[in-house]
């Protein structure tokens, strides 16, 4: 998996879940760098290089965005809309990673051009496998 110069932006308000995701990625050497923001506003600031996120070297553009839906300040769907509205950002694959398997949430996400919708598995082994597969698929197998 070496040779994939990779940054993932993880947008997740639950720090425990964020840690789970990040540790899984680290354990499986999926990405070089995982950037974590806790709310929708910070995510948009990051992607639009506002405020402290203006520094390109410290906060590189991600190749994959993992987006939770229920976020403080600006919710996940709003973040998704902003990303897909922007010509430069819309090419970055966005995977919704959430606890919600509500049909309305899934439909809404696809309406706003999400690239994939994934529900966090409760089972640890499934969670681990999902993280591994996600990273592999979007960062290595998927051609752009």
């Amino acid at each position: 998996m070496e040779g994939c110069p990779l940054t993932i932006l993880l947008i997740e308000d639950n720090s425990a879940h964020a840690e789970l995701v990040m540790r899984n990625f680290e354990d499986h050497l999926v990405a070089n760098k995982i950037m974590w923001v806790e709310d929708g506003a910070a995510a948009l600031d990051y992607l639009f290089r506002r405020g402290k996120y203006a520094d390109d070297s410290a906060y590189p553009m991600p190749q994959l965005i993992l987006l939770d839906l229920r976020l403080p300040k600006i919710d996940g769907i709003e973040v998704l809309k902003e990303i897909k509205r922007d010509e430069a950002l819309r090419n970055i694959p966005v995977v919704v990673l959430t606890t919600s398997d509500a049909e309305t949430d899934i439909a809404k996400a696809y309406t706003h051009h999400v690239n994939s919708y994934v529900v966090k598995p409760v089972d640890f082994n499934s969670f681990t496998k999902l993280m591994k597969d996600l990273g592999l698929y979007w960062l290595c197998w998927n051609r752009k």
Partner: peptide, 11 residues
């Protein structure tokens, strides 16, 4: 959400 956390960290 906490259930995922608990199961995840148990793993």
């Amino acid at each position: 959400s906490p259930l995922i956390t608990i199961k995840g960290f148990l793993g």
